[in-house]
Amino acid sequence: MNIGALINGLPGAVAQGLIWGIIAVGIYITYKILDIADLTVDGSLCTGGAVCIMMLLAGYGNTVSLIAALVAGMLTGVVTGFLNTAMGIPAILAGILTQLGLYSINLKIMENRANQPINANNYDLLVSLRNIKNVPFFENTIFIVMAITVVIVLLLYWFFGTEFGCTLRASGSNEAMCRAQGINVNLNRVVGLTISNGLVALAGGLLAQYQGFADVNMGRGAIVIGLAAVVIGDAIFGRLFNNFAFNLVAVSLGSIIYYLVLQVVIWRGLDAQMLKLLSAIIVAIFLAIPYVKNQYFKSVRNPKHHAEKGVKFNA
């Protein structure tokens, strides 16, 4: 066991965790706020990566390429939202349909190739595997992604605090109430899916740059890794923070922790092929905890005690 190898790998894990943190923030919007599991992300992540890399290869700048990735991702969200709200297809199935269709589209974006590499020597990349050590801090990938995350969190904090943004949160909490209060739940769902997939694709662009290629399979299991970050962040920091912006930061931190743990696991000699299984098991456990707690471990309290603890109607 070479502790040096582990320490060496940590900055990379943090950088990757931060990029996946943006994906997780996107997933937080659909999963936690809108209360739907959106599987579009498995496709839109790659769409973002593919668009970004192809634009860079075509000679466009970093900003334009990343914005194009963001917009492409938003479009995928619109498609899922349309299938779900206007066509009446259940959200989870609508996401799967979009994701499947995107597989072909992503291949077409990458000019029929499953993998499109980009050479960091010939292109000016915003983030890269190479820029995590021994570079000025403002060129450091960790710093850049952190800055992007902060901007995203602030924008989302503002948006979900506005009159309109608040109706999105309400839509995920109680649809009947929303309709009774004149809120267009369907529109909100489309908007939420659009923002979510836009963020995921933007992060996809960053991820492709970071790893130096876009791959048609790069989004496989993204929803699970994103959920892992959401549930880890919630489990560790959920009780600490009671503020929307901090909740988003917790998601990002959850993602970093997830990658740090992975780094340790790999360092301890786990077969890398087993990583996805490990991710699935982690998420399954975290998602199961609240249910299992309630179902099997809840002591039946004495009713008097219960009434005292509960909130009473003080009429």
Binding site: G161, T162, E163, C166, N174
Partner: peptide
Amino acid sequence: GTAAKMQIEENLALAMRRGKIRSLKWF
């Protein structure tokens, strides 16, 4: 009739804007 995950004042503010266009003003 109410959104459980939201605060009392947020619920009231949602109702206060019934029939109005929900803008990007702070809530």
